[in-house]
Nucleic acid binder design. Sequence first.
DNA 1: TATGAATGAGTGTTCATTCAT
DNA 2: AATGAATGAACACTCATTCAT
Lengths: 188, 188, 188, 188
Amino acid sequence: MKNELIKHSIDLFVEKGYSATSIKDIVDTLGVTKGSFYYHFTSKEELLMDIHLQYIDELLSRQKRIVETEKTSRDKLVKIVELVIRDIEKQGPIGRVYYREIRHLTPENAAIIRQKRGEFRDNIEQVMAEGIENGEFRKELQPKMITFAILGITNWSYQWFNPQGELSVGELADMYTDFILNGVLAEK
Amino acid sequence: MKNELIKHSIDLFVEKGYSATSIKDIVDTLGVTKGSFYYHFTSKEELLMDIHLQYIDELLSRQKRIVETEKTSRDKLVKIVELVIRDIEKQGPIGRVYYREIRHLTPENAAIIRQKRGEFRDNIEQVMAEGIENGEFRKELQPKMITFAILGITNWSYQWFNPQGELSVGELADMYTDFILNGVLAEK
Amino acid sequence: MKNELIKHSIDLFVEKGYSATSIKDIVDTLGVTKGSFYYHFTSKEELLMDIHLQYIDELLSRQKRIVETEKTSRDKLVKIVELVIRDIEKQGPIGRVYYREIRHLTPENAAIIRQKRGEFRDNIEQVMAEGIENGEFRKELQPKMITFAILGITNWSYQWFNPQGELSVGELADMYTDFILNGVLAEK
Amino acid sequence: MKNELIKHSIDLFVEKGYSATSIKDIVDTLGVTKGSFYYHFTSKEELLMDIHLQYIDELLSRQKRIVETEKTSRDKLVKIVELVIRDIEKQGPIGRVYYREIRHLTPENAAIIRQKRGEFRDNIEQVMAEGIENGEFRKELQPKMITFAILGITNWSYQWFNPQGELSVGELADMYTDFILNGVLAEK
DNA sequence: TATGAATGAGTGTTCATTCAT
DNA sequence: AATGAATGAACACTCATTCAT
């Protein structure tokens, strides 16, 4: 039930936004009552926090595995980009909620999520820094700014990319890793 | 007065989001009454539409001038990226409202804005296509996808970049044009 | 201008009711502004009072002439019924406002109108009483109740009768005077 | 609770009219909150529709029984008049709301009510037509117009008759059936 | 005469939340 | 684990009225 509630509320949050989605909207799609919702969640915000946590925690753990497994900075970067892009299909629309509704969390909860987001970003930044250091990436790059640029490319895809369209997530991932590598790889 | 209302509401929409900002919030910051708001706007949504129109129309007209003035595809691309990045400082926080709140427009109004967004994107796409054709840009690039990547980089900056921070908009623009050019320019 | 305002507001009051008609509705149909309305009327209620007064005063004066002019009770009654029925066409929809919106007058103004309504009713009642006394009408009738019955027949016509329909006001008046006379005239 | 709300709102609608009665007025008389009102009704108009339906449905079903039970046209007519007049006391002031506030229903709902009103009128018309055919009523009568006259007499009573006054509903009913019969019965 | 801008109280309605059952 | 009823604060919006110009 709790998972059902989460699943349906994500769809609604994507479609109408968190503020514009009422508890009634959520429970109506499941045919249960509001009281039932409040048995499983103490507040609407707790639900939102659950969604955020679930998403970022999975992303972080998979990112960690990549960093530990891959050898070269180049491969680490490629795999992380692929992770985020391919997730558009797998995790579905949750990503859009994730980037948009953080301001509706309480300051404390927002801080927790921001910290985890920071971790994810820091991990990319570190890959960049290592790559620059070991000569894989160009020396002039500023790891922090390039990280934001990469996140911009990938996150923005959640806004416009349709996995059911003419391009598959795989093709999009290939295209973008290619583009990014061209921007960062040192000339041979 | 109408302009004052627009200005203050942008700040509030940035901070709390459109749905979470009440008309009362807006008029209170100006010390006027709700009745006054409704003298100038027929609805909250009209205000949001005004904000969207004002923003995209200015962007479009400046983009048009760039495309007409600059000679090479490279310069066109550089200037457009600069236009968007430097706007973070000039137009201030309005950009964040622009990308986030479109779903609160009526379908008709949203369609109008989406069409103008499409124009802006199409213009970049055309610059890419021209550059590829005349040999300035790499042959393998897909104009459409690269355009989305560029928009991802620039738009995402509205989410995190602080013009009062250690980096100026000018420096960020330089960095990003450099990164993008590296990704698209054909080897010499 | 004042007369224009009265004329258009009657139409709106008929259509939507007094409460549901706003000053804005009224002035919009004339293309003027609210300030203009308040130059001519001190309040919305004053307008309503004007409408009531105009209507009842004309009715009363015409009724008075009938009572003074006609000889028999029967003719007095017939002419009064005709007066009210034929007015559906002449005065148009004002009658419907008259009977419906009196409760939106201030108590003082409502009292004035009710008193004039009372006069109109009393005059009919007196015709009935005279007719009974002089043997024209049946002895068993109670003037007061019959008066209300007659007013019911005539006033109700304002609710359903369409002067542009298959029946003319003249025909309706004939039919109803006939029906009423059958109910009240003493057998010969 | 729902019934309580209906009961109290009828009183207020009678007194001040539908438009001039606010939800707050209604719930304040019961000491509950607006939220509670909206738990039971989806809108103010739904409440108005409920009132209309409740009234006309009962009237129609009782009218139907009369038409099926009574033998002569005369008796049918007498019983129907009595039904409406006696209802002033039983159903109380609801009748006044019924005839006055129909224009505040949505067009769809108004159509439903108007159709039921039409049925009630048609049933009387048919009694008239039968009575004329079988010789009980005068040949010259036009069933439709006489029906409106009868409805005028009875409905108007809702506006002025006070069941607690000097006359009882029974006496009023007798008086009016007598008056109407005099107007319609064929001479013997 | 008329306007345009503003007011402030009020309207119908929504909604997150509570709680006895 | 879930319901049905209720709350109360908030919301977008309306409107009669005022008033300087």
